[in-house]
Design a protein around this nucleic acid. Structure first.
Lengths: 233, 233
DNA sequence: TTTATAATTTAGATATGTCTAAATTTTTAT
DNA sequence: ATAAAAATTTAGACATATCTAAATTATAAA
């Protein structure tokens, strides 16, 4: 069976999932911005989602929106499919990592459970996608990732890039061309005390690059010592 | 870019393509049956297809429907995607051959040109799908297949199965379990002169099976001698 | 606490693709 | 050539998901 939800319903569930990852509720306006639709469209969709049986969202005026467990399940299922597809596109088909998101966004709504299962087998039940985003397992449990933001990495400490959180294709392409992607070694050489931008090098390379603070907050790294420990422990 | 057509438009184009393979036009009623929609739905869709720029169908009252070259291109593109996907599902993901059609029918409307190209590369630019149906090449040209219907194969002549035309999952499963699929050797042992059903064996096996006339007309084979010639020529 | 601003919802319209029922046209048979 | 049957089209409705504009409600500021 395919996802029993329309593409639109699925997209709303994923958006609510993203916006409530911090444990809080979200608002119609946030959703409207994320989904690129008018706020009134959100209202009518939220009504619909709340009136499904079982309900997919908890939605009360002037309270906010959260996912019910049914809604959460659906969002996680789509997230699993999306990230498995990204891994497939990247690893098996040879896509560049900045191109996988758009294609996976279409496919995730269409593939069956069988496709999902076979694909996971083919790829060896991967735990992370090409950006290092965690892939929910067959039971929809998230792998844990102990990485810290690059913005918090001490200077002159070797670390491994674990995750690059961005949906900007241009930025991803740029970072990828520099070699900054999950698995790369990275070292912060210095910090700008004013704007918190970072000078860093990749894979012991001689070329020094610069990253703004906002970007560096969305790159997660693991100190090499810790990574080594985890591997040998 | 994805197919610039909606799923529905694409399905109509494919249906018209199928129904006009013999070189004739088709009728709204034929289309309604093939698409499983009411005849009036066909009328309104045909108007729409005929009014696109460029038009996708030639459609005149009491004349019939045919594809324009733009419509033909779109139908062939979808057919290529469908059959490449079937081959991928079967060969790479491990689907049973009776299950590939339904999944490919969904995916074909969603994949991009890039996906199509990479998939064709991955599979080695295949010319036939798991049922032996020809896959249009990158320029949408159809590979030729000189096979003849099993219903016309002489008795006691060894032949190779080249194509099994059926969309009935149960029948495909049944034939597959018997070993009757593209690449198998087959020999007609005898014919029933009344209903033209066939007794046959697969891969020199001792087990004799029976096939009705209508099914045998949709299985295409190539005499082993001819196949050998083509290979060595 | 009242007003101004921001957020949200309602009301009504649009586009797509479907349906049923009725009307019309075409084909076939007498 | 006309009547009966079959095929096709029109008319009007429905579901989904969106929009704009207006109305309402909630929040923040004075």
């Amino acid at each position: 069976m395919n996802s029993r939800f329309s593409r639109s319903v699925g997209d709303y569930l994923k958006a609510i999932y993203q916006l409530t990852l911090n444990g809080e509720q979200t608002s119609p306006l946030n959703l409207a911005e994320m989904m690129n639709v008018a706020p009134s469209s959100v209202t009518s969709m939220l009504k619909k989602l709340a009136n499904q049986v079982p309900p997919l969202v908890d939605y009360q005026k002037s309270y906010g929106v959260t996912l019910t467990s049914a809604g959460m399940q659906a969002a996680l299922r789509l997230t699993r499919r999306h990230r498995l597809l990204e891994e497939f596109l990247y690893r098996t088909l040879g896509y560049d990592w900045e191109d996988v998101h758009a294609e996976a966004d279409e496919l995730e709504h269409v593939i069956s459970s069988r496709f999902e299962d076979y694909l996971a087998s083919l790829l060896g039940e991967p735990e992370f996608d090409p950006h290092g985003d965690p892939i929910p397992n067959r039971d929809l449990a998230m792998p844990v990732n102990t990485a810290i933001p690059l913005s918090e990495l001490s200077e002159n400490v070797d670390a491994v890039v674990r995750r690059v959180k961005s949906s900007h294709e241009d930025l991803l392409q740029h970072l990828g061309q520099q070699g900054l992607r999950p698995g790369s070694q990275i070292r912060v050489l210095s910090r700008n005390p004013v704007d918190h931008s970072i000078q860093y090098s990749i894979n012991h390379g001689e070329i020094t690059q610069v990253l703004g603070y906002e970007v560096s907050r969305n790159i997660y790294v693991e100190e090499l010592a810790a990574a080594g420990l985890r591997l040998s422990g």
